[in-house]
Nucleic acid binder design. Structure first.
Length: 279
DNA sequence: CCCACGACCTGCTGGC
DNA sequence: TGCCAGCAGGTCGTGG
């Protein structure tokens, strides 16, 4: 469940459970996810209290009172769930990490495809963190606008859809919200990034912010039975204009309902768009 | 530097 | 009905 709105929804769901909590036990049920867990992972988490839970792009960052930051990424299929104090923990398939908190509650990380990530770094070194430092601006941050986007796309030849999914251009946009934002901004996903003019970049930056804010209000999108931390499902999938709507009529009135959503492959990922509305 | 593409995994589904 | 190729919300490394 992993684009910015989903990860932010997870962060908000986990915050009451984690912030202020102390980790008393860490059970690693395998040696790693895509990469092995870092050296001393369980040892460094054990005994530490979580002082804050932040998000950068699609990464969750838990600040610990021992100076470390616990970084998590949900990949394609990762999820966290809470197990209540009085409830016995029964392992489910693909449960990989189980944290026990001092208050008796448990936090379980489950990830069938294991594209997720967990790592540690020192808070003091975060500015030098290779992956985090390479990330583009937060689309919901105060410093993101059409000018910033225009400057970052300047000279790029890749199709705009591919550029939007490049975490170094703008952070947190994935396949769904790239498609949805381009539809809202009436931009053809195949258009060369560097040929998008300043006005269109203003529209696109606004479209990204709008669609992400709308998704956040719905608790994100829940595809394939994914659930948020509290077990509820996000509802934004019911508001997709184009994503997963190949062959449907274009929902925008300027297309007069006669045109249909097309599906193409870009960079190995599916793109949905209206060839009439999006020029 | 910039870009294309395969690899990494498991589970579900749609078409035969 | 049953099987399996193909596809799924992401990132990274390796080529050209």
């Amino acid at each position: 469940m992993p684009e910015l709105p989903e990860v932010e929804t997870v962060r908000r769901g986990l915050k009451p459970l984690l912030v202020g909590a102390r980790i008393t036990h860490v059970d690693l049920r395998r040696a790693g996810l895509r990469a092995p867990f870092p050296e001393g992972f369980a040892r460094i988490l054990t005994g530490a209290a979580i002082t804050d839970l932040r998000r950068r792009a699609k990464y969750l960052l838990a600040d610990l009172d021992n100076g470390y930051v616990w970084l998590s990424h949900l990949g394609m299929s990762g999820s966290f769930r809470e197990v209540a104090k009085e409830q016995a923990y029964t392992p489910e398939p693909h449960d990989h990490v189980v944290l026990t908190l001092q208050n008796g509650k448990r936090l379980v990380f489950n990830d069938p495809r294991r594209f997720g990530q967990m790592d540690l770094h020192r808070r003091a070194d975060e500015g030098a963190h290779k992956v985090l430092a390479a990330l583009g601006p937060e689309p919901l941050g105060a410093d993101f606008n059409g000018k910033i986007l225009f400057d970052r796309l300047l000279g790029k030849k890749v199709p705009i859809k591919i550029a939007l999914m490049d975490q170094g251009v703008v952070a947190g946009v994935g396949n769904i919200y790239a498609c949805e934002a381009l539809f809202r901004a009436r931009i053809n996903p195949r258009k060369a990034s560097g040929k998008i003019n300043r006005t269109a970049c203003d529209d696109l930056a606004q479209a990204i912010r709008d669609v992400m804010n709308a998704a956040l209000k719905s608790g994100g999108s829940s595809l394939r039975n994914h659930r948020q931390v509290d077990g509820k499902e996000g509802l934004f999938q019911h508001h997709f204009a184009v994503y997963d709507h190949a062959g449907d009529r274009c929902p925008d009135c300027t297309c007069k309902g006669r045109h249909h959503i097309e599906i193409i492959v870009q960079g190995g990922r599916t793109t949905f768009f209206c060839p009439v509305k999006q020029r």
